[in-house]
Amino acid sequence: MDIKVTINGVKKVFNADPGEKLLDLLRREGYKGAKRGCSTGDCGSCAVIINGKLVNSCLIFAGQADGHTLTTIEAIGTVNEPHIIQRTFVEEGAVQCGFCTPGMILATKVLLDKEKDPTLTQIREALSGNLCRCTGYVKIENAVIRSADKMRSE
């Protein structure tokens, strides 16, 4: 079946099996920033943004994404031109193994697009679907706070 989406600002048509998950489709099509950590929607490593909301692409059938707007980590910034959030995550030591990082950064992006000056509770809620086993979350929380500061003063 055809899946028509706007992904990272580009209109694309992908072919998918009826039972295929969005994560499998994305990785197959080269969007490798979405990672597979559990396949049950519990870890958030596969998170992508659909219509402005953070979702687990492992829990979504490709067919569900048809007609929608998707954003993956690949659209946020690059190594040479990183987004403020990406740079701040590195500066604050919020990246260890980096496997959860794309999901964490997308979660932060969704939050900061909506809330310029989020409270600690809002930050924690926004990142509650993303598990990290390396950092203990302390530096991740700092990175979100610092990103918000920097984005406000831009």
């Binding site: 909301k53 979660a107 509650s128 679907g129």
Partner: peptide, 12 residues
């Protein structure tokens, strides 16, 4: 509703 899973679940 705010307890129905983490945000990634509640969104969908």
């Amino acid at each position: 509703s705010s307890h129905c899973g983490p945000i990634t679940i509640r969104n969908i």
